[in-house]
């Protein structure tokens, strides 16, 4: 069976959930090989968890340069391994950086690219949800090794045993053409999951009314172990930071459960959350368009409904 390369998405050796989703998707196409581009010693730490999701091999591409330069070390690593392994496909998470890595890799290898797929068939056909989920498109690569970026939350992660045999690979970074990363600041999101990775997202809109009142959104999110999101209207009004914006000019999320509080549901917003599995909406205006796509809607004041829901969730958790 051919190898399928999966670029491990991690932060300082903490493997992100999307990596397990990529490994699960890769098993449909062949035998998954995880590629760890990181500081020395990282692969040894993560190989067991990669094996649990079916990684037969773990390529360790480890050096200080691998971490201290932007994007290109990952492209170099994947291009080098692709040269020897002749993989059936290369899977990368559809994050901002993942899309850049995939784009450059495809340009370098002369391979076709599928961006932001939400599903993959055994023959390599990718399903994309575009125009904010209004259209479903099936595409296929017709040139070279298919390079596919997969949207976090798009494919379900399922466990399967893999040998996770470690193999180290050397790359040399051409520093003259590379960009040095001189410092990093992780997002200060406290203990909340990352927005695009979360299985539950609670978002607030204009109806929340102020930055202080966003507390009511955060409390519900915390009771559910959810990420907090915000509509563009809420961000533009200064209620919540831009990095949490869900919608066309913000993040696209696809969680199991999306709860919209005081969000009218403009196309701009719906484009970023329409592929959520279940949508709950609370809004005072019974004509708010969000209700057209909500599986369960409550017409009422979010300041009454959300705290009550928070309490009910807490009660059930004991």
């Amino acid at each position: 069976m051919s190898e399928v390369l999966v670029l491990v998405d991690h932060v300082d050796g903490d493997v992100k959930k999307v990596t397990y989703e990529l490994l699960s998707a890769a098993r449909r196409l062949g035998e998954p090989s995880a590629v760890v581009v990181a500081a020395p010693g990282t692969a040894a730490k993560v190989r067991e968890s990669l094996g649990r999701y079916g990684a037969a091999k773990v390529y360790a591409v480890e050096s200080d340069d691998a971490v201290n330069y932007l994007v290109t070390p990952k492209v170099d690593a994947l291009a080098t391994i692709a040269g020897t392994a002749s993989p059936a496909a290369i899977l990368i998470s559809a994050t901002i950086e993942g899309k850049e890595v995939a784009g450059r890799l495809a340009a370098r290898l002369g391979s076709g690219l599928l961006v932001d797929v939400v599903d993959i068939d055994e023959d390599g056909t990718g399903t994309q949800s575009i125009f904010g989920g209004a259209f479903v498109v099936k595409s296929k690569v017709n040139t070279g090794t298919p390079i596919i970026t997969v949207r976090p939350g798009g494919v379900e992660a399922t466990e399967a045993e893999g040998a996770a045999a470690e193999e180290s690979v050397e790359i040399s970074v051409d520093t003259a053409k590379a960009t040095k990363v001189t410092g990093r600041e992780q997002i200060v999101g406290g203990d909340r999951p990352e927005l695009t990775e979360a299985s539950v997202v609670v978002s607030g809109g204009r109806g929340v009314g102020s930055a202080e009142s966003f507390d009511v959104v955060e409390k519900l999110a915390d009771s559910l172990g959810a990420a907090v999101g915000a509509s563009r209207a809420a961000v533009d009004s200064g209620y919540y930071p831009h990095q949490f914006q869900v919608g066309q000019t913000g993040k696209t999320v696809s969680p199991q459960l999306y709860i919209a509080l005081g969000i009218s549901g403009a196309i701009q917003h719906r484009a970023g959350m329409q592929t959520s599995k279940t949508i709950i909406a609370v809004n005072k205006d019974n004509e708010a368009p969000i209700f057209e796509i909500a599986d369960f809607g409550v017409v009422g004041d979010l300041f009454n409904v959300a705290p009550q829901l928070t309490e009910e969730v807490a009660k059930r958790k004991g």
Binding site: E292, I293, F296, G297, V298, V299, N304
Partner: peptide, 12 residues
């Protein structure tokens, strides 16, 4: 659109 209810004090 799925179910929609008016909040009569027990919406949450």
């Amino acid at each position: 659109a799925g179910q929609r209810i008016d909040d009569e004090g027990v919406g949450g």
